[in-house]
Nucleic acid binder design. Structure first.
Length: 469
RNA sequence: GGCGGGGUAGCCAAGUGGUAAGGCCGGGCUCUGCAAAAGCCCCAUGCGACGGUUCGAUUCCGUCCCCCGCCUCCA
């Protein structure tokens, strides 16, 4: 059995991923999804692309991955946004939800098994049931304002994920000063009592009308869909505290036994843009849509996001995107060349054993740099062979088969190329004739005409090659 | 103050107690009517600073400097 090792935030160590007893090859994966009050930005997508790489690699290694990603469709910002636009909550979030799925597709993210939304009646019911369980066990209380809070003093393990000792904490700047109703300042909201600003947003509960706190949403949806113990839970580093800490507290206190909530916690570092923290005020805030408008493609953005190890800060730059474009073009050209060399021979010869290093690098906590190094070394080596005419068709086919496996993980192959229009085909035929007759002027004119139609012609050793401009 | 992540060539970035992967940029060459593309080759006596351990350290230990993040609802 191949051992995939990952860095577990809980233990701060590299640990081999082993399925739960009784589960042969199935792993559950819960990933915190977007809050759909706006378009997700590339920082959000960095986390989703990392999770996608993880899922795809686990699948390559033979695991069946059951993945759930939640959608947070109710929180302060969402309510404010809906209120400001005069729309019902669901009408306000719907376009952002649809946009998220489109963006995910553009970035080639494998769809999750389920995308529960916080406002789904079924999920609200689960949250209420979980809060009720916490109340019964003395882990929660209702404050004077009607809101329910988690009693952190009742859970000694609180802080084990972030490795924080609340005693030593300096209060953060965002502690709301009006939360005097709580027993302890660190106690977090499970259920927020309805207030006038909430307008039409609210659900009935045993404790009165209100809405769920953010943390309970994930706890309820994760355990509701994947069971009491989840194998892998991912998110951004900023979620470690308090969000994931709170999730642990809720699940392990409401649970039926001493079942740990999550076995492997994985967190993705932040993304910076041009060297600084991404912020609207700094003018370096990008959604995927912004980048597509600038002419970048989904796979270029994917490459830029995927090519830096997930636990290191990623500095996202236009230069980085340009590098992604060049590297992808090189991979594309190589794949085409291999395809030509492969011909239609049925025989397949396995590539050099070192190519397996691509996958063993990823086994090591998703060492993408090491994996890409193997990919490019293989590229150069086989190009040399082809230059010298040494690469046999069975060898080329072996490399293509390997490349297909590699791309099952990277998902960086070009989109299906658009069919060449008849008009362009005719011009190409004319141009080929002109070239054969060495009528260079005519050849150049035809190249211009083809360019006007939106296609670029390049003359290679083996004739003309056109691509959509 | 507490807890994390990080400082490796112009940029991005792996990695190892034994003499620095890979990508981009740049340079050279090949191909070539031109243009473009593509391919190959070259490109860090050096791994934040200073000490120490060692036959040998970028890699281990110590001290220090710098950058970034989290510390209550931001991936």
């Amino acid at each position: 059995m191949v051992a995939v090792q990952v860095h577990n935030t809980l233990s701060r160590k590299l640990e081999a991923i082993v399925p739960r007893p009784g589960e042969r090859q199935t792993l559950s994966l819960y990933t915190c999804g977007p809050t759909i009050y706006a378009h997700a930005h590339i920082g959000n997508f960095r986390a989703y692309v990392f999770e996608d790489l993880l899922q795809r690699h686990l699948q390559e290694r033979g695991f069946t991955v059951r993945r759930v990603m939640n959608l947070t469709d109710v929180d302060d910002k969402t309510i404010r946004g809906a209120h400001a636009s005069g729309m019902a909550l669901g009408d306000y979030t719907r376009p952002f939800k649809e946009a998220f799925f489109e963006d995910a597709k553009t970035l080639r993210l494998v769809p999750a098994e389920a995308y529960p939304a916080a406002t789904d009646p079924e999920q609200i019911a689960r949250m209420i049931a979980m809060i009720a369980s916490l109340m019964e066990r003395g882990h929660a209380y209702q404050a004077e304002d009607g809101s329910l809070y988690f009693r952190i003093a009742s859970f000694p393990d609180y802080g084990k994920l972030a490795h924080v000792d609340l005693e030593g904490q300096r209060p953060g700047q965002r502690v709301a000063s009006d939360e005097y109703e709580k027993e302890a300042v660190a106690d977090f909201a499970l259920w927020k009592a309805w207030v006038a600003e909430d307008g039409a947003v609210g659900w009935e509960s045993p404790w009165g009308k209100g809405r769920p706190g953010w943390h309970i949403e994930c706890s309820a949806m994760a355990t509701g869909l994947l069971g009491e113990t989840i194998d892998i839970h991912c998110g951004g580093v900023d979620n470690i505290f308090p969000h994931h800490e709170a999730e642990i507290a809720q699940c392990e206190c409401a649970g039926h036994g001493k079942a740990p909530f999550v076995r492997y916690w994985m967190h993705c570092a932040h993304l910076m843009v041009e060297g600084s923290k991404m912020a609207k005020s700094a003018g370096n805030f990008f959604t995927l849509r912004d980048l597509l408008e600038k002419g970048w493609t989904g796979r270029e953005v994917r490459y830029a996001l995927i090519s830096v190890h997930y636990r290191g800060a990623l500095n996202f730059t236009m230069e980085g995107l340009a590098a992604a474009r060049t590297a992808l073009a090189r991979l594309d050209a190589w794949r085409e060349r291999l395809t030509e060399t492969a011909g239609s021979e049925p025989a397949v010869e396995a590539p050099d054993a070192t190519t397996e290093g691509f996958f063993t690098a990823l086994d090591d906590d998703l060492n993408i740099s090491g994996a890409l190094a193997i990919l490019f070394e293989t590229l150069r080596e086989s190009n040399r062979s082809m230059d010298e005419g040494r690469l046999t068709p069975p060898q080329a086919r072996g490399l293509l088969a390997w490349l297909a496996r590699v791309d099952g993980v990277l998902a960086l192959q070009p989109d299906d190329v658009a069919a060449i229009p008849q008009e362009v085909e005719e011009l190409l035929a004319d141009r080929a004739a002109a070239r054969a007759a060495k009528e260079w002027k005519k050849s150049d004119e035809l190249r211009d005409k083809i360019a006007d139609l939106g296609w670029v012609v390049k003359d290679t050793k083996d004739g003309q090659r056109v691509t959509k401009s």
